[in-house]
Design a protein around this nucleic acid. Structure first.
Ligand SMILES: [Mn+2]
Ligand SMILES: [Mn+2]
Ligand SMILES: [Zn+2]
Ligand SMILES: [Zn+2]
Lengths: 147, 147
DNA sequence: CTTTTTGTTGCAACTGGTTGCAAGATACCA
DNA sequence: TGGTATCTTGCAACCAGTTGCAACAAAAAG
């Protein structure tokens, strides 16, 4: 867990504190392979300590998201999903409405759009939190499969 | 209200019914100048009939959205906002995090991005529901004003 | 006009997520 | 080491929005 060192340093820089709860959430995110719901991450943390509250999970995921360690994607089914992105280039997320798969697109692919919005509308877009919905290559041809 | 005729025709085409509640929501949306929350639209409808339930407002806004009459924008403050878009070209919405203003961008401005996603990722994006966050021209220079 | 069909509504319960607050814990310093 | 300032937590209440369901009402048929 190389990012724990970085995490602690960034916490200190912001005058925030390292707590067992924050360590457990970070650890749970390392266990998880891909995107998981807050409830799934909560279950992982409970295996480490039963007394943690779900609101602490949400608060910690939000903190990690704002620190750039975690991507948060609203998959359109009423539950957000979270995954570690530590050290990766920030990206836009594509959610397939057929199969539910989430793909990250490096933000430089979107640079032309950013420039156009800046030039035409004077708008400086922050693409850290953007999610686009549609159909992936697999799901485009075939009949839409259940999620 | 030119769109009421179209609304009735489209309802019939889908085997759905015209109800007083649906007429009142459409009328409330015509009264509203710009984007309003469900609660604000609910208040407008209540002035016409006190017994309508807020769940009916949500269900009707959702229906109108799916029929393409209404744009729905998550302004990032925990409340969605709705506005009539009848007959307009579909567009992406820009939300300024400084002043809260919502601007519509015609979808053809975003066409190059769509093509890139199609070519590079095989992903067919549906941009009807996209909202981008950032800072508008006014709010970029000055210190961020309260919403 | 009456009946029948089927879509719609109000209501209450529920969902994922947020928030105010007092108790508890961390970091820092004497 | 103990004391203090301040951050964080668990908890319970709350929020916007959704949903199951039985009563109701629009449309169509007779
Ligand atoms: Mn956040
Ligand atoms: Mn619009
Ligand atoms: Zn797919
Ligand atoms: Zn602004």
């Amino acid at each position: 867990m190389a990012c724990e060192k970085i995490f602690i340093r960034e916490l200190h820089q912001r005058g925030l504190r390292l707590t067992p709860q924050r360590e457990m959430v970070l650890s749970a995110l390392h266990e998880a392979k891909g995107f998981e719901t807050a409830e799934e991450i909560y279950e992982r943390v409970r295996r480490l300590s039963a007394s943690v509250d779900i609101s602490t999970i949400y608060r910690t995921l939000d903190l990690l998201h704002h620190m750039g360690f975690v991507a948060s994607v609203d998959a359109g089914d009423g539950q957000a999903r979270f995954a570690l992105t530590a050290l990766q280039e920030p990206h836009v997320h594509l959610v397939c409405q057929g199969c539910g798969r989430i793909v990250g697109v490096p933000i430089h692919e979107v640079e032309p759009l950013l420039q156009a919005l800046r030039a035409r509308y004077g708008f400086e877009a922050d693409l850290d939190d953007v999610t686009l919905y549609g159909l992936c290559e697999n799901c485009r041809g075939s009949s839409p499969s259940a999620r």
